[in-house]
Design a protein around this nucleic acid. Structure first.
Length: 350
DNA sequence: CACATTTGACCTAA
DNA sequence: TTAGGTCAAATGTG
């Protein structure tokens, strides 16, 4: 990506990258259609999701998106102030909101199944609903930082019917907050230990947190990637510790686990973006129960480019807002560089 | 007291 | 009309 283009605007760079990725995905889709039908179904769904994601991103870049930035209603500017009287709310006019409720929601970013609800982010439950086709209720969470930072990330959680000990979590919207506990730490490391197969271009790999057994598993739609994404437990890298140790952390809130303690947040994410491909990403989280963080595809590229598109829900790992990627400052100018691979690398010399 | 969760009402898209 | 998603008062918890 912005290999040498210091002159190009970040948006342009991102746009090019997204277009490129989309094209690649399209090609992959074509290839898959020609391979075995069995594996194709899943992969096909994955590709569809990716394409949707890319389209969404492109729309955002082009300014044609749904304007997830239009935070007029979501309390970004400070949630308070909207009190709705229960009685006669709808008819009493003032409290009625036309488009700020209901189905206005961020696009689904990711669906994962996990044995714990801890994903490295701080969530606040705002509702629970018995869903028609499910025996278990669905719980609604939004980022704890919605009021103070306007973070619109949400997630829907419901107990897996197939396996009650697991949760199926749908992530919506991206985290724009700067929760220290989830502040991403990116590092490019040699792809040595977890080199994905060559056919896994644009692959992001997240290692399970702490090597703990509680790890996200791939969702139905992304299981194809799961194997690579959750590859292996990886130790945190000292250099990251030192580099980001200034961020304190607030432990992620989790169901049944009050977020009170505070500790350092050593959230680490490693990724490598080389030659237009994400080679490897590993992460570590602080919470003992934590699962790894991030569900697979967090589109770090978005963060790099600073495009505010809905990339990662539950985005524990890759806040896509430029602000939350401060340590990558300088990268926008195209100076991705000091890392292992070629021009499309994250810069850490903040 | 501050913040999180619960829960029924409200709202909107399908 | 219904189902899903959200709001916000009430309640719980540290």
């Amino acid at each position: 990506m912005a290999s040498s283009g210091g002159a190009r605007s970040p948006a342009a760079v991102v746009l090019d990258d997204l277009v490129d990725v989309r094209d690649r995905v399209a090609m992959l889709q074509t290839v898959l259609q020609e391979s075995s039908p069995g594996a194709t179904v899943e992969a096909g769904e994955l590709v569809e999701g990716m394409m949707a994601k890319l389209s969404s991103a492109l729309s955002a870049v082009l300014g044609t998106g749904d304007g997830s930035v239009a935070s007029s209603s979501s309390g970004a500017g400070g949630g308070p102030g909207r009190r709705r009287r229960r009685t006669g709310a709808a008819s009493s006019g003032p409290h009625r909101r036309s488009s700020s409720r209901g189905r206005m929601k961020s696009p689904l970013i990711k669906t994962v199944t996990a044995t714990t609800l801890t994903d490295g982010k701080s969530w606040r439950k705002y509702g629970q609903k018995q869903i028609n086709d499910s025996t278990n209720p669905r719980s609604y969470y939004r980022c704890t930082h919605l009021p103070d930072q306007g973070c619109k990330a949400k997630r829907h959680v419901h107990v897996s019917e197939a396996n009650p000990s697991e949760y199926t979590i749908d992530y919506y919207g991206q985290h724009t907050c700067r929760d220290p506990s989830t502040f991403p730490s990116l590092i490019v490391q040699g792809a040595a230990d977890t080199a994905p197969p060559p056919d896994c271009a644009n692959l992001i790999s997240f290692a399970p947190i702490n090597g703990a057994n509680r790890a996200f598993t791939a969702s139905t739609s992304t299981s194809a990637f799961a194997h690579h994404l959750m590859k292996e437990p990886v130790d945190h890298h000292p250099m990251l510790f030192s580099q980001f140790s200034n961020y304190s952390s607030s432990p992620p809130a989790q169901e049944g686990i009050p977020s009170g303690s505070s500790s350092r947040a050593c959230h680490e994410r490693f990724m490598q973006y080389a030659g237009g491909q994400f080679v490897d990403i590993t992460g570590r989280s602080t919470s003992p129960l934590t699962v790894g963080s991030a569900p697979a595809e967090y589109w770090p590229v978005v963060g790099v480019a600073g495009v505010d598109m809905d990339a990662g829900a539950g985005m524990d790992s890759f806040p896509s807002s430029p602000s939350s990627l401060g340590f990558m400052s300088g990268s926008l100018g195209g100076s991705f560089g000091n890392t292992v691979c070629d021009d499309d690398l994250f810069s850490f010399d903040s």
